Simulated scan of single mutants.
Amino acid sequence: MQGFLESNDVVAVVESAANDRRMIKAHVKVHIGGVPAAVEAYRNSPTPNLIVLESSADRSVLFEQLALLAECCDSGTKVMVIGHENDILLYRELIYRGVSDYIVAPMNILDFIGHISALYNGESSETLGRVIAVVGAKGGVGASTVCHNLAWSISRQLALQTVLVDLDLAFGTVGLDFNQDPPQGIAEAIFSPERLDANFIDRLASRCSDTLSILPAPATLDRSYDLSEHAVDATLDILRATTPCVILDVPHQWCAWTRRVLVGCDDVVIVASPDLANLRNTKTLIDSLNASRLNDHPPRLILNMVGLPRRPEISLGEFAKAMEMEPLGVIPFEARLFGAAANNGQMLAEVDPRSKIIETIDDAGQLLMGRAIVRRGKNPCSRPSSSD
């Protein structure tokens, strides 16, 4: 995409949009000079996939300039015009002359990105799935347990097709927590990019219920897992395009690929315990992700293992004040419940459907998926039997 713009405000919006995570795969260049500069630039040069033009000229002048540009445009190039006149007749005339879209300034960043997306996806395209990443602020805070139960809750409470992906390749516990030992999982997708398609990933996934599938980690040390920054991109792109909800269990490590996963997802959930190290790490994660996700909701916070006996804790109020946000959920320490679930390969709701913790996780799942919280008289937490 190349932009030929006139005003500083529009330049700022386009440049900010180019740095947004949604445009991460687009190559964007911004020039000053409007339509005349575009005509001059493409007299002897091929045109890009998309040309964005800003014009404050009279419509007759604009039509003449666009006619000159049309003589230089290659087949398949789309043209978007940003104007300063909100006139439906002007819009119709531009569309008639072959312009792909017309936007009236001022505009915000997400509106601009939405218009670009509509040019290539169209109104008939399927809605992309929602990707939620769960990561621990510190090792041992129970982030994986929260992540797995969150996926289970969303799939059951909201009846959404959900895929749980274990990205802790060396020590992941998705297989253990669901009492499954499938021969294949997420590693085969990551290390076989040449075979990747929707059918291949579907064969790798192991079904836990009618609405929940898992892509477990191999959890073996027979190879190193030094992944490249883009190693997970293709797999997540396919999952996003084929599954309404994708939950990522992200290991507690900071490297190029984990940062890219966290920045690129729709929502980030940080799981922390109320102590000083967790407070510092949570604050660091939130600040870093906010800087890279300027147009997204800030990371969510779930406080886990609250009320651990004999452990001095930072109060919930102080923790929330330091983060400048209220927690999405607060989960108390219940050793018997969590221990039984882990040892039996069950979800918390299967061990004790009446626990208040289940309600907290259900509420978090509904909020993350943009749904209003709905209370149910009966918690549908049992897995389907073989006769269902």
Rank of each mutant, 00 (worst) to 15 (best):
S56R: 15
A57K: 10
A57G: 05
A57I: 07
D58E: 13
D58Q: 04
R59Q: 11
R59G: 01
R59T: 12
R59L: 10
S60M: 10
S60Q: 10
S60Y: 04
S60K: 09
V61N: 09
V61H: 05
L62T: 07
L62E: 08
L62Q: 05
L62A: 01
L62S: 00
F63S: 13
F63P: 01
F63R: 11
F63H: 08
F63V: 05
F63K: 10
F63Q: 10
F63L: 12
E64H: 09
E64P: 03
E64D: 14
E64W: 03
E64T: 11
E64C: 02
Q65E: 12
Q65G: 01
Q65L: 12
Q65V: 02
Q65H: 09
L66M: 03
L66E: 02
A67R: 09
A67C: 01
A67T: 12
A67Q: 10
L68K: 11
L68D: 10
L68H: 09
L68M: 10
L69Q: 04
L69R: 06
A70Y: 01
A70I: 00
A70G: 13
E71T: 10
E71M: 09
E71L: 10
E71V: 07
C72G: 00
C72V: 12
C72H: 14
C72Y: 02
C73Q: 13
C73W: 03
C73F: 03
D74P: 03
D74F: 00
D74W: 03
S75K: 12
S75Q: 12
S75M: 08
S75A: 15
G76P: 07
T77L: 04
K78R: 15
K78F: 06
K78T: 07
K78W: 05
K78E: 08
V79I: 14
V79Y: 04
V79D: 04
M80F: 00
M80H: 02
V81H: 08
V81D: 08
V81A: 01
V81N: 07
I82C: 11
I82S: 05
I82N: 04
G83S: 06
G83F: 06
G83L: 02
G83V: 02
G83T: 03
H84V: 11
H84M: 06
H84A: 08
E85A: 14
E85T: 15
E85P: 04
E85R: 15
N86H: 11
N86V: 07
N86S: 15
N86M: 12
D87C: 09
D87H: 04
D87S: 15
D87A: 11
D87Y: 02
D87I: 07
I88V: 15
I88L: 13
I88Q: 12
L89Q: 15
L89V: 12
L90V: 14
L90D: 08
L90P: 00
Y91C: 07
Y91G: 04
Y91H: 09
Y91K: 10
